[in-house]
Nucleic acid binder design. Structure first.
Lengths: 254, 254
DNA sequence: TTTATAATTAACATTTTGTTAATTGTTAAT
DNA sequence: ATTAACAATTAACAAAATGTTAATTATAAA
């Protein structure tokens, strides 16, 4: 069918890949955790051998959406191409379509974010259009001269991460299957600023009652771990409870 | 610059316009409130005089995005064109870009929703490509044979409305500036199903303590209304408090 | 043995809930 | 005038949940 409309000149999909790194700060101590974002350095030439747009700048991984796929599928495909990681839970969070955001013309981008384990990203590889791949703290990333409007996209993604962290059990994607309370606390504190989380006594008293986690047992007795402390600490795992919160109610509803 | 990429054949913006109608169910009684969505009937011919795609079907208002605007701006523009209403708070909630969703080709749609006052929609007008405009209950709307993938879009929009109603003070957009508790309750119940809202005693005891509303005073004394009851009921208004909820905390934080 | 430390528990005063049962103010019908 | 009806509130109170401070516990290392 004849194209009767003025159409965009490109349709792309970008992915903000977040991870939380753990830094061992001493023996028998919970590690210091920090939120990081994965960026790629745009190479000088594209795969056709022509100069690449915004070459040399750091940018979110992403690429053009193909006509036989959705932006979401493109995000999955590109994520695998860039990092070698599959099966992660990608979320769409926004559209960036301001005229002039890309010098090549009217190019629309769908923005996604994904949470990866630090371990997953160890398998990342450098591909033809990413001369370098690196993890940055959010502060570092936002100080760089990023390609296109990727600074705005990252700021927005961060906001969505914070919201999701507070409203859903997103934290589970930053944690191993079995974790101790201090690990959960560490993950939450990378993103949320809340005294009821940062105050140890309050958090340790309350956390075991969260309806969405449960203590792990083994051979009929509670399973403990000494990975971060001398005292064995109880291991927990997330269950399938989906908490629902509301400004009109305090108690959680599933 | 030469276009080197396979590009979409159209970029559109759709808007789900919601309103809550009030039906007087008797004197001195709170009115029955119901969530409705505004749909347009696609006309047989488009403005060029050619047969219109999906003609005769009910659909979300919307249209093609122009290259000098964003999808968001297109939504604002189309909303005004369709309804004559300006200045409402439009929210983007999703992208619909599955191959095959529109027979005309690879056409991407950005979906938005907006809350309008029932009164606002009284000024709505019929335009060249909408032979009819009508409010439907959500049940009615989802039973229609809707154009394109608009059924999916409406289902998704409904989900977002519910979420926003629970997590934000979205309810304010369905209420007059000054309202009584039973009106607030009525609005919430059109979308949320929660005993702490539907149980009168619980809701009336708790509502006055919500940090995001406050009692209205006039001439130094509390302002009351008798619009829905014989007993004068206290009037409230929303303030600027933005409640923040979290699954890890019960008390509200601003 | 002792010390240090993260994890946990105890104890308790304070706040918030959920519920049931009154009260109040006002209209409309005796 | 009285009274019935009824939505909107308030009262009262037991049950839960929260915030805080102060123990306790288990273990490694000195």
């Amino acid at each position: 069918m004849k194209n009767k409309f003025i159409t965009p000149e490109g349709y792309t999909s970008d992915i903000a890949v977040f991870t939380i790194t753990s830094e061992q700060v001493g023996e028998y101590k919970p590690p210091k955790k920090e939120l990081k974002i994965m960026l790629i350095k745009r190479s000088e030439l594209n795969h056709e051998g022509n100069p690449n747009m915004e070459a040399g700048k750091w940018a979110l991984p992403g690429g053009f959406v193909r006509p036989e796929e959705t932006a979401f599928q493109a995000a999955e495909r590109r994520l695998t191409e860039e990092t070698g990681v599959e099966g992660l839970k990608i979320k769409h969070f926004g559209v960036y379509d301001s005229p002039g955001r890309d010098q090549r013309g009217w190019i629309i981008s769908n923005a996604h974010y994904v949470i990866a384990n630090e371990a997953d990203l160890r398998t990342r590889k450098t591909t033809y259009d990413a001369s370098e791949v690196k993890l940055f703290t959010l502060e570092e990333a936002l100080e760089l001269d990023l390609a296109f409007d990727h600074q705005t996209i990252i700021e927005d993604a961060l906001w969505f991460i914070k919201k999701d962290m507070a409203l859903t059990t997103l934290a589970r994607h930053f944690l191993p299957d079995e974790f101790v309370i201090s690990e959960l606390q560490g993950v939450l504190l990378t993103v949320l600023d809340d005294p009821s989380i940062s105050t140890d006594a309050a958090f340790f008293r309350k956390a075991p009652t969260f309806p969405f986690i449960e203590a792990v047992s083994e051979d009929g007795k509670l399973k403990k771990s000494k990975r971060y402390s001398k005292t064995p600490a109880q291991l927990y795992q997330f269950n399938d409870y989906q908490p629902i919160v509301s400004v009109y109610r305090n108690k959680l509803q599933g």
